[in-house]
Design a protein around this nucleic acid. Structure first.
Lengths: 340, 340
DNA sequence: GTGAAAGCGCTAACAA
DNA sequence: TTGTTAGCGCTTTCAC
């Protein structure tokens, strides 16, 4: 069992003062090489690690980042999106020496209790918040607090001066649909995600834009809500079939899987009878039954960027607000028919 | 923008000393009701929250719990198991006033860098570790550090004196198989998870125990590895079909879904031709195409218990080590045929 | 019941 | 290049 040491004690062992040890620990330049080596040696032997509370108190920095998943999306934590995002964020935190503290709000109560503690206790250097409903009080509260924060994703009405990063859902959907158009499809259906969601809305816009750009009509019968679930995609597809789509663009891979299943059950061939394109490319590890053509969101890198941006804000302030939109990538596999 | 206050300043505003404010904040008894009210009022007005670094430094307690997912399982973070576990843990943390700090080790390097910081920096009051490979160095390292920790799940060879909580996989599997036996099945196949995994091993034992207890032979042809993936379950089932099982017990729901799909593709009826039982009951929100009979793991409550146990250890020490095994529950739906 | 004062372990300005 | 010293904001004896 390793005894916990202090700078003072390390200093005594190395025959120097605590300041010198502090300098060595913090990699400051003005220490004689020989002394530095002696101190390092003692640190190695003792396994010394500086006390983080004391350090935070003195520097007014905790080295801790918060990741906040508001109540309205907490139930979706099973969603691979959050898992991957979290993974990217922790990865970047590890690389940059930050610790990550996770806040999932399960109830109103949690939110009321934790938000002030989190924004006022100077426990966190900065916060990454998952965007949520427009009326979520969390953004205004963070704006009042003197705490750097970054929104991941966007709200429909984003307050002025808020930093965010997001994926370009409009152009992603556009790419998907244009790809189908280029393959000769004309009756392209769209299974949307829940439309209380900015991402769903944007993907719908991209879908319509692509049709318009190629002089194809928008047929409202070909637009059905799939609620971001596999069953939703399945049901949506059943609703679509009477209107004879020759292709389906689903706003998520999960829904695309549901669609593929529905097509299979209806005895239709993919991609010959109906082509399918999804969105996300988050499932590859789970599901290889279908080689799904999809729009890849670079979620992992997205998480990494989130950490980079928030730490930039922490170091240099929030002016001007950082607002970055990341591009997506069309991943051609088999369900679109381009590979035949 | 709320200014950050100190106890001293609050005291000045309320006309008392900082000690009194501290007593009020910490709900200590010996404060005159009138004074307490006056101080509370100021705190409310100013939105004061005590500085957590200063508090940690003085109390030697951080109020932070660590959740460590070692490298060997970090890739499985997409697994709903971890998502749910994390959810249960954060929920309990919120309720008990702990903060949760997440450590996903992605590389060897992460592990070497972070483990000492985490176990020596007195940044955490305690750690919850997901069990992993037997040769993972993390358990020995934590034992050396003076840091309370609790293992979630078990290793094959668990060092003496380590506290852990786990689910009773043996009896869970036993229940599943016994249920199938009671329904009259005799050629019950088992799709195992990856067998480098204690949980898979235990489920296999439970499967064999149940057969033995009912004088049914163990046919090695009826035991196939499904690697905990849907495709693994699908392939395993294809391998099983020539041996004509009348029921399949899959060691996870994901694999059970794969099995159901394989049976469907083979033109077999569930549960009439082949009955299916899974394990986990973690998928209900994603997947309702099949009403899968399964063994429910109380993961959410499990997470809650983890926090309770670790905080017990923090407060009262690790002697005796806490070792709890939680029971599972048979959830009868449609794929086993009991409901027909 | 309340206040004064010491100290938690560190950083950083200043002095040497 | 190194040491001395004064805090960082809180808790906690100890007096009163």
């Amino acid at each position: 069992m390793i005894k916990k040491m202090t700078l003072e004690e390390i200093g005594k062992l190395a025959g120097v003062s605590r300041s010198t040890v502090s300098r060595v620990v913090n990699r400051q330049p003005d220490v004689k090489a020989e002394v530095r080596e002696r101190v390092m040696e003692v640190i190695r032997e003792t396994g010394f690690v500086p006390n983080s509370a004391a350090r935070s108190l003195a520097t007014q920095r905790s080295g801790i980042l918060g990741l906040v998943i508001p109540r309205s999306v907490a139930t979706f934590f099973g969603d691979p999106y959050f898992a991957r995002l979290t993974q990217g964020i922790t990865q970047a935190c590890n690389a940059r020496g930050y610790m990550l503290s996770l806040f999932l709000f399960h109830s109103n109560n949690d939110e009321e209790l934790l938000l002030p503690r989190l924004s006022q206790g100077s426990f966190l250097d900065g916060v990454i918040v998952q965007a949520t409903r427009d009326d979520d009080p969390i953004i205004p509260q963070l704006m009042k607090a003197a705490l750097p924060f970054l929104v991941v994703g966007r709200l429909n009405t984003m307050p002025e001066g808020v930093s965010f990063i997001d994926v370009d859902n409009v152009s992603g959907a556009y790419k998907a649909v244009e790809h189908l158009i280029n393959l000769g499809h004309e009756r392209i259906a769209h299974i949307t995600g829940s439309l209380d969601n900015r991402a769903s809305l944007d993907r719908l816009i991209g879908y319509k834009n692509a049709l318009a750009a190629h002089n194809l009509p928008v047929d409202e019968n070909l637009i059905v809500d799939g609620a971001f679930t596999e069953d939703g995609g399945y049901e949506a597809t059943r609703d679509l079939l009477p209107h004879q789509p020759d292709a389906i663009f689903a706003a998520s891979d999960i829904m695309a899987i549901g669609a593929l299943r529905a097509l299979k059950d209806a005895g239709l061939q993919v991609p010959n009878d109906v082509a399918v394109v999804g969105f996300d490319d988050l499932l590859s590890s789970y599901q290889t039954e279908f080689a799904l053509t999809t729009i890849r969101q670079p979620i992992l890198r997205f998480g990494v960027s989130a950490v980079e941006v928030i730490s930039d804000i922490i170091e240099n302030g929030n002016t001007p607000p950082r607002q970055k939109i990341y591009d997506t990538e069309l991943i051609i596999r088999e369900t679109c028919g381009a590979r035949q």
